[in-house]
Simulated assay, not measured.
Amino acid sequence: MKPTHNPLAVYVHIPFCHVKCTYCAFNTYIGLDALVDSFVEALIEEIKYIGRVRPSQRVGTIFFGGGTPSVLTPAHYTRIFAALHDSFAFDGDAEISLEVNPADVSYGYLRALREIGFNRISIGMQSANAHELRLFNRRHDNDAVARAVSAARGAGFGNLNLDLMYGNPHQTMGDWENSLQAMLTLKPDHVSLYALTLEEGTPMQDWVEKGRVPEPDDDLAADMYDFATAQLGAAGYVQYEISNWAKAGHECAHNLQYWRNMPYLGLGPGAHGFANGVRYSVLLSPQRYIKTMMALDGNAALLDYPLTPVVDQVNVLTQKDEITDTLLMGLRLIGEGVPRQAFRERFGIDLLDLHGDLLRGFAARGLIAFDDERVKLTDQGRLLSNLVFRALV
Rank of each mutant, 00 (worst) to 15 (best):
R134T: 06
L113N: 05
F118V: 02
H131V: 01
N142G: 08
D143G: 14
L113F: 05
Q126I: 05
L133S: 09
N142F: 15
F118N: 02
V105E: 03
S106N: 06
L98M: 14
V105A: 04
R134H: 10
I121L: 15
V100C: 12
I123Q: 01
R120C: 10
R139G: 10
L110G: 02
A130G: 04
D104V: 02
L110W: 02
R134K: 15
M125P: 12
D104F: 04
L98I: 13
A103K: 04
Y107N: 01
L110R: 03
E132W: 11
L113K: 06
E99G: 07
D143Y: 13
E115I: 09
Y109F: 15
I121K: 08
I116W: 06
R138A: 14
Y107F: 15
S127Y: 08
G124K: 05
R114P: 14
G124V: 04
A112S: 12
L110A: 10
Y107G: 05
V100A: 14
I121T: 01
F118S: 01
E115N: 09
L135C: 12
E132R: 12
L135D: 02
G117W: 00
S97W: 04
N142Y: 12
F118T: 03
R114M: 13
A103V: 00
E132M: 15
H131C: 13
S122Q: 01
M125A: 15
V100H: 01
Y107A: 10
N137P: 10
S97I: 00
R139N: 11
N101I: 06
L98E: 00
Q126H: 12
F136H: 01
E99K: 05
L113R: 06
P102L: 07
I123L: 12
H140F: 15
H131I: 00
L98T: 07
D143V: 14
D143R: 15
D141E: 11
S106R: 03
Y107W: 10
V100D: 00
R114S: 14
R111C: 11
F118M: 06
H131M: 08
I116D: 01
E115G: 08
R139L: 15
A103G: 10
A130V: 08
G124W: 03
A103L: 02
F136Y: 12
S127V: 07
F136N: 01
R134A: 13
F136P: 05
I121W: 08
R114V: 08
F136D: 00
R114H: 13
E99W: 08
A130L: 09
E115H: 11
E99A: 09
H140A: 14
G117L: 03
A128R: 07
N137G: 12
R139T: 07
E132P: 09
R114G: 13
R138Q: 04
N119K: 15
H131P: 13
R134F: 12
S97L: 06
F118C: 04
I123M: 10
R120Q: 09
V100S: 10
R134V: 11
D104P: 04
R120E: 02
L135M: 14
I123C: 10
G108W: 03
R139V: 09
L133K: 07
L135V: 03
M125N: 07
D104K: 03
L98Q: 00
D104R: 02
R138L: 13
S97G: 07
L135R: 04
A128N: 02
N137Q: 11
S97N: 06
R139M: 15
S106A: 10
G108Q: 09
L98Y: 01
